[in-house]
């Protein structure tokens, strides 16, 4: 008798049934709602969704709006600086903590602490710290430095860096912990071998440890990047987009359009642009990163 080959579809049936609700949710919520949003971004939807098709009109308006242009520019500055600063500060702190120092637990807790605060609280704290009348500027002036000026939140040219400071303060502790876990995963033997070969510590870090920590860096990168693209609450609490519109970000533009302007179509167009920009970066990268592993 011939043995019947089990149908691939029914292999591991229980596991597949168990995963069904999640698959349905993912399809409906993520894919379904995304398609819905993209479709309605081509309509003249105002407060309520409508089917009146207007083609690319919402996108034309979007890219002609100074508020959106400033938001995109801010996101680029913020994203670039945030990425570099978080990774560098996170890694350096982790490397310093990894020197078998005393009170490591205490210091780690203190540095990680800001991460336990929401962005709203972070934004408010830094709004006060950077307030020219009673924040850093005033404290330094009271110490006798009368001409000292540090007032980023009311200066349209540098306000985004004021937001950046708060974001780095909040986020770098977490990146440090991720990096620290990565460093702890490095085999002690590698350090010993490097020492035997007489390689200086910094060269060991740069040429041996960091390449070995590639998966950890990828994780950190994804965490930071998703934080950057969705930054909204921090800006909302700290500057509310001001002064003027100089610290607007795309996510805030979307919310403002959908609810403040009661213009869903415009909000959907903006969020579709956000999705598109993420996809443009993410898809080739994911292909390189994960596709290669499968074949190699």
């Amino acid at each position: 008798m011939q043995t019947q080959r089990p149908n691939a579809l029914f292999r591991n049936l229980t596991a597949k049934i168990a995963a069904l609700p999640m698959i349905a949710t993912a399809l409906f919520v993520f894919v379904g709602c995304t398609l819905w949003t993209v479709y309605y971004s081509f309509t003249k939807s105002r407060m309520l969704p409508s089917d009146k098709w207007v083609g690319l009109q919402q996108y034309e308006r979007l890219w002609n709006t100074p508020k959106w242009q400033i938001a995109v520019e801010n996101l680029l500055i913020f994203g670039f600086c945030m990425m570099i600063l978080s990774l560098v500060i996170g890694f350096v702190l982790a490397a310093l903590l990894d020197q078998k120092i005393r009170f490591e637990n205490t210091i780690r807790t203190i540095i990680l602490y800001p991460f336990a605060l929401s962005f709203i609280v972070t934004g408010l704290i830094w709004q006060w710290v950077l307030n020219p009348d009673f924040g850093i500027q005033q404290v330094v002036r009271d110490l006798g430095w009368q001409s000292f000026e540090f007032n980023p939140l009311f200066n349209p040219d540098i306000v985004i860096y004021g937001v950046l400071i708060a974001a780095v303060w909040q986020g770098s502790g977490f990146i440090m912990v991720v990096m620290l876990a990565g460093l702890r995963g490095i085999d002690e033997e590698i350090w010993k071998a490097a020492r035997v070969d007489g390689i200086p510590r910094w060269r060991t870090y740069v040429f041996i440890i960091i390449p070995m920590m590639r998966p950890v860096f990828v994780t950190a990168l994804v965490l930071i990047a998703s934080g950057i693209i969705k930054v909204y609450d921090l800006v909302k609490a700290q500057t509310n987009g001001g002064p003027g519109i100089s610290s607007e970000v795309p996510a805030k533009y979307v919310i403002d359009m959908m609810f403040g302007n009661q213009n869903l179509g415009q909000g959907f167009a903006a969020s579709t642009m956000m999705l598109l920009s993420v996809a443009v970066i993410l898809i080739p990268w994911a292909y390189l990163e994960f596709g290669r592993k499968k074949h190699g």
Partner: peptide, 19 residues
Amino acid sequence: ISQDTEQQMRDLFIEFFND
């Protein structure tokens, strides 16, 4: 005017007063 236009005006004038 609609809420949309109203809000666009607000964006314009808050920018004007600050920039």
